[in-house]
C-alpha cells in the first residue's frame, strides 16, 4: 500500500531534518527543562500548600511541564509545512504519484514521535530529581499515550494555521501569544484551589487543565483535588481528558485536512 510506505518515507525525512537541525529540538526542550530544574526550585515551598505536603512541587509540576513541552513542540509542526510550501518542495512532491494523505500523515507521525521522545527525556530528568511514578511503568505508558494524543490534536492547530496563512511568522507569533496565558490559567503549574476565583472559572474550561489532570494522576497517584494520594488510576479524570482532547482533535485535524485538500488540489 503506497499510503503506508509513502507516509513512512516522509516520516523518515522529517526525522532526519529534525536530527540535523538540533537547534529546533533544543528550543522546544529548553523551556521545559529550565522549568523542571529552576522553576520547581523557586516554587518548592508551594508543595506545602498544594497538596497538604504529601507531594513535592517538582512531582506536582512534572505533569504541567510535560504538557508544556508537548504544547511547544506540536506548535512547530505548522512551520515545517509552511517551509515545504514556500520552498516548492510540496509542489515537487505533488508532481509525483505520492499518496496525498500520506504527506499529512507522515508529518503527524513525526510530530507524535518527537513529542514522545521529548516527553521521555523530561520524565527521565524528573526521575533523576526524585519524581517516581506512583502507578509504575503502566502509568508512564499511559502518560506517554495521553501526551501523544494531545500532541496530535495540538499539531492540528499549528498545521491549520500554517496551511491557512502560509506564514511561519504567524504560526510562531500565535504560538508565542497563547502559550503562557493558556498554561498559567490552567492547573499545569498550580492547583485549582491556589488560584483566584475568576481564574478557577477559566481553568475549568481550559482544555490544558483537562489534559494536565489526566497526566498528573498517573504520576502522583492523587485524586483531582490532591486530597488523597494513593488512589491509583483516576479513570474518571483520564477518560474525561480523552474526550476533551478527541473533541479538539476532531476540530483541528478536520480543519487541517480541509485546508490541506485545498492546497493540494
Amino acid at each position: 500500500m503506497s499510503f503506508f510506505s509513502d507516509a513512512f518515507h516522509l516520516f523518515v525525512r522529517s526525522m532526519k531534518k529534525l536530527v540535523r537541525n538540533p537547534i529546533l529540538v533544543f528550543f522546544s526542550l529548553f523551556q521545559p527543562i529550565i522549568f523542571l530544574l529552576l522553576f520547581t526550585q523557586l516554587f518548592s515551598n508551594l508543595g506545602r500548600f498544594i497538596s497538604g505536603g504529601t507531594l513535592t512541587y517538582t512531582a506536582f509540576a512534572t505533569a504541567g511541564i510535560v504538557l508544556q513541552n508537548a504544547f511547544s513542540s506540536a506548535f512547530q509542526s505548522g512551520t515545517a509545512v509552511v517551509d515545504d510550501i514556500k520552498s516548492g518542495f510540496l509542489a515537487k512532491m505533488l508532481a509525483t504519484p505520492v499518496n496525498r494523505s500520506a504527506i499529512l500523515f507522515g508529518r503527524l507521525l513525526s510530530d507524535v514521535f518527537r513529542v514522545v521522545a521529548q516527553t521521555v527525556i523530561i520524565l527521565v530528568l524528573a526521575f533523576a530529581l526524585g519524581v517516581y511514578p506512583a502507578t509504575g511503568i503502566i502509568g508512564y505508558l499511559l502518560v506517554i499515550f495521553t501526551v501523544a494524543f494531545f500532541g496530535l490534536a495540538w499539531s492540528g492547530i499549528s498545521l491549520a494555521l500554517g496551511l491557512k496563512t502560509k506564514s511561519a511568522e504567524t504560526v510562531f507569533g500565535i504560538a508565542g501569544a497563547v502559550t503562557f496565558p493558556l498554561l498559567f490559567m490552567s492547573t499545569a503549574l498550580v492547583s485549582l484551589g491556589f488560584m483566584p476565583g475568576w481564574m478557577q472559572n477559566v481553568s475549568n474550561f481550559n482544555p490544558i487543565s483537562f489534559a494536565v489532570n489526566a497526566i498528573r494522576n498517573p504520576i502522583t497517584g492523587c485524586n483531582l483535588d490532591l486530597t488523597v494520594c494513593n488512589i491509583g488510576f483516576d479513570w474518571g479524570t483520564i477518560l474525561q481528558a480523552f474526550g476533551v482532547i478527541a473533541g479538539i482533535g476532531i476540530v483541528t485535524l478536520g480543519a487541517t485536512l480541509y485546508l490541506f485538500r485545498k492546497v493540494v488540489s
Binding site: 525525512r13 532526519k16 531534518k17 537541525n21 516548492g88 518542495f89 509542489a91 504519484p97
Partner: peptide
Amino acid sequence: RKIIGVQNQDTVVDEDL
C-alpha cells in the same frame, strides 16, 4: 504523474538531506 519528470523554475532540493 508516473510518466513525467518536472523541474520547477525555482530550484527545489531538500537542503537538510
